[in-house]
Amino acid sequence: MRAMVLTTKGAPLQPVERPDPVPGAGEIRVRVEACAVCRTDLHVVDGDLPDPHLPLVPGHEIVGIVEALGEGVTTHAIGRRVGIPWLGGTCGCCSYCESDRENLCDEPVFTGYTRDGGFATHVVARADYAFALDGFDDPVAVAPLMCAGLIGWRSLKMAGPARRIGIYGFGAAAHIIAQVCRYQGREVYAFTRDGDEAAQTMALSLGAVWAGGSLEAPPVVLDAAIIFAPVGDLVPAALKAVAKGGRVVCGGIYMSDIPRFPYRLLWEERQVLSVANLTRADAVEFLALAPVAGVKTTTTVYPLERANEALADLRAGRFQGAAVLVP
């Protein structure tokens, strides 16, 4: 197999050849067709997230074909297309797992962080954390759904029944979840980096009723806001924009420090919530909803060997939608 490997935090990924991995009990080996590049991959590579399992193959928005089955696997068949997400395994016995909150598991496994991921030609995953993608015929198009879509969906659920929703940071997750909002009859107000006319144009094309700079005041009071940009300064800005009782959902795994802000912005029962990982139930729900809602992803394709370029372009905001690596 070929892989792009992180050996030192903050260093470029290195091309490596290895023997094809052998699935253990309860695991499957997948031939990777596509792996989207997530901002979380940047946080892993740049060292924002502590203690990655080095040397590491990043990547957790994986789509591929089952090529081999480990002992005891009966839920997947060779030749089936599956998706592999960020949450790669849980203990199943802690208080969180036993209360249907496996996303908060005390001993989780994360694809592309604590175990090798999809910036490679092959990957091994737990069979019970790989999702059948029957009916999804384009692996490049579906790859961003495996994290940007799933975390976007969990963030939207946590926002509650809000009709007017502000989305801060219009990247991969936002461009997917805006389409779900449109399908559900919600109004989207898109906040982008100042001067990013391309992102604002994209947001409007996907159904947003307004698009402006990240610190602009929206034309109406919002019921809720979702922050996908990893910028702590946006939390008080979003609180200022939402109505009494409104929610501000922080949808990323990493965010810069939130600055001090006056209590009056939080008062009147406004809430600040964070999203942690996903549950398998989230994935089942969203993968059933996405085709019905007509979700279409915008992608920029890179060969596997250009993974460093894809990461650099994501860091600099040089494309709209999602980058996808294809071996």
Results as ranks from 00 to 15, higher is better:
R2V: 05
P21N: 12
E27M: 13
C35M: 03
C35D: 12
A36Q: 02
R39N: 12
R39P: 02
H43Q: 10
G47E: 09
P52G: 09
L56R: 01
V57A: 01
G59R: 10
H60V: 06
G70Y: 11
E71W: 00
T74Q: 11
A77M: 04
R81A: 03
G88N: 02
G88D: 02
G89S: 08
C94W: 06
S95I: 13
E98P: 04
D100N: 14
E102N: 06
D106Q: 13
P108E: 10
T111F: 01
G112Y: 06
Y113C: 05
T114G: 07
G117H: 05
F119D: 04
A120Y: 05
A120P: 10
V124P: 03
D134N: 13
V140Q: 01
V142K: 05
L145V: 04
M146H: 00
I151K: 04
S155C: 15
S155V: 08
R163G: 09
G166Y: 03
I167R: 04
G169W: 07
A172K: 07
A173E: 12
I176F: 07
I176C: 09
I177W: 08
V180H: 01
V180R: 00
C181T: 12
Y183E: 02
Q184V: 05
Q184P: 03
V188Y: 01
Y189V: 05
Y189R: 05
T192C: 14
R193G: 15
G195Y: 06
A208S: 15
G212A: 10
G212T: 12
G213N: 11
E216W: 00
A225N: 04
I226A: 07
A229S: 14
K240T: 13
V242Q: 07
V242H: 02
A243R: 13
K244M: 10
G246T: 12
G251E: 00
S256E: 09
D257M: 01
I258V: 15
L266C: 02
E269N: 13
E269D: 15
S274E: 06
V275A: 13
D282Q: 09
V284M: 00
V284W: 03
F286E: 05
L289M: 14
V292E: 14
T299R: 03
T299D: 04
T300Y: 02
V301R: 13
P303S: 10
E305Q: 12
E309S: 10
A310M: 07
R315L: 02
Q320G: 08
A322H: 11
V326T: 15
